[in-house]
Each structure stands twice: as C-alpha cells, then as structure tokens.
C-alpha cells in the first residue's frame, strides 16, 4: 500500500510540467523513505532525476518498495484537472494496475479523482558516479532561463566557461558571436546573487534547446545550480524547498 498527500499540490503539477517535454514513459520508484525517478530522453542525451523525501509530505506511507510505470504525457493531462490550490493525494495498492490521484480543495469543497492506468516500462537505469564537481555556479533561475532563451535565438550551442572570477555563456553563429559573463556577486539582495565555487575551471559546449527544456523547472526554485566537471555531463539542479531536488543531466558536445 502506498499513499502520499502533498498539501501544496501545485509543486507536483509543476514537476510534471518540467519533465514532460523530455521524458515520455517513466518508472516512478516508491520507497518507504520517499519517491524518486530517473529517466532519459529518447536520444539518451539528457536525463531527469527526481528525489522527493517523505518528510515533505503531509502524510506518507509506503509499506514496501514499488515501481509505478506511468505515461508522463497522460499524467500531465490528469494534472490539468488540478486547481493550483489543490492538495494532491497519490494512492496505489500492492501490485497495482492504476495510480489513484485525488485533488482536493478544502476551501471550495471540490474533489476530483482519477485512476491513471499504469504501464510496464522496460527502462535502462544508469549508475551516476559520485562526482566532485570542480565548478558549481548558483544563479537566479529566472536569469539563467532568460540567458538561455535569448542565446538560443542566436545559436544552437552555448559554451560555458568557468573560472574563479566569472561564469561565461558564449555563442557563435551565423549572426555573429558574443558572450554573457556573470561575476561572483554576493550582494545583499539574495535574488541577485551569483555564487561561484570553482576549484578548477571548466569549458564545455551544450545544446541550448535542452537547457531551455530544463528551465521549465525554474518555477520550482529561485535558484538554479550548475555543476560542471570537464569530463562529466552538466548537472542543472533545482532544489524544491522542504521536499527534495530535481536534477537534469546533459551530455556535452565535444569538438573532434
């Protein structure tokens, strides 16, 4: 038996919106300590990794580990039934064939229930090695979204360069070339801060269209954390207050 109730259901709605363009069918792993999922996009370039702790739920019970295979596209359609102020409860029996999703609005007394059919997914699970990232950049999530969006209109690829003084996003295309450079900024206004933690500088290229998809999660978190290592995929991380973390991994483009 699995049951989890989230008071701020909007968070779950936002999570589904933030991953639905990247992954289609996903195995959701339920454990007594929380909910997690890991899935790659069809081209195996990007990976979504979500971890939600039981502590963030108003009520959480999972007697055993369970795997719930869901179509994210269909889950997103169901989530549209939820009002932004709804509480959301997820329920599944042992050996379940469906996931019961309940939306409740205590103020308006409206309740919506949907039984989403589960599917069997044969998915590859990747072991992500523990990595000490040599450059970690914490940046306002709205600002990072805007930079990626605007640069994408000029080029398909961005080169991210880090050093102890700044992080630089540079593009080169038919239109021309240029860069946005952000220096370390620990100003009093927290939302303006850009925090650089660089032990070794990194220079890598990435397809901007994936970054734009990841940035849908900027509504979940005021800050985006970019974790870079010269020999590893980029991690774009969004912390979800008191609940967990949504991470995206993106393989670099490498010049021959």
């Amino acid at each position: 038996m699995f049951e989890a109730k989230l008071t701020e259901g909007l968070i779950l709605k936002k999570i589904v919106e933030s991953i639905k363009d990247i992954v289609t069918d996903v195995n959701i792993d339920i454990s007594p300590s929380g909910i997690s999922l890991q899935a790659m996009d069809s081209s195996h370039v990007a990976l979504v990794s979500l971890n939600l702790s039981m502590d963030g739920f108003e009520h959480y019970r999972a007697d055993t580990n369970m795997v719930l295979g869901v179509s994210i596209a269909n889950l997103a359609k169901v989530m549209k039934l939820a009002d932004n102020n709804d509480q959301i409860t997820l329920q599944a029996d042992q050996e379940a064939t469906h996931l019961k999703i309940i939306f409740e609005n205590p103020k308006t007394e409206r309740t919506t229930e949907f039984n989403l059919n589960l599917i069997t997914i044969d998915s590859e699970h990747l072991a992500i090695p523990e990595t000490e990232y040599s450059s970690v950049v914490t940046i306002n999530s709205g600002e990072f979204s805007k930079i990626c969006k605007e640069l994408f209109s000029l080029s398909e690829t961005v080169q991210i360069t880090t050093n102890t003084d700044y992080v630089q996003f540079s593009v080169e295309g038919e239109v021309g070339s240029g860069q946005v450079r952000l220096g370390h900024n620990d100003s009093e206004k927290k939302e303006d801060q850009t925090i650089l933690e660089v032990s070794e500088s990194v220079q890598q290229q990435f397809a901007i269209r994936y970054l734009n998809m990841f940035n849908k999660a900027s509504t979940l978190s005021s800050f985006t954390r970019l974790c870079l290592h010269q020999e590893q995929p980029l991690v774009v991380e969004f912390k979800i207050d008191n609940l967990g973390v949504l991470k995206y991994f993106l393989a670099p483009k490498i010049s021959d």
Binding site: L126, A127, P129, T157, Q232, A251, K253, S255, D256
Partner: peptide, 14 residues
C-alpha cells in the same frame, strides 16, 4: 561544431 555525446559515454547501466 561539436559532436553531441550520449550519456552512455559517461554513465554505465546499473
């Protein structure tokens, strides 16, 4: 420009 690598180059199947 660069060649897009796949995640399989970096992460092993578990």
């Amino acid at each position: 420009k660069g060649v897009q690598k796949s995640l399989g180059t970096f992460f092993k199947k578990s």
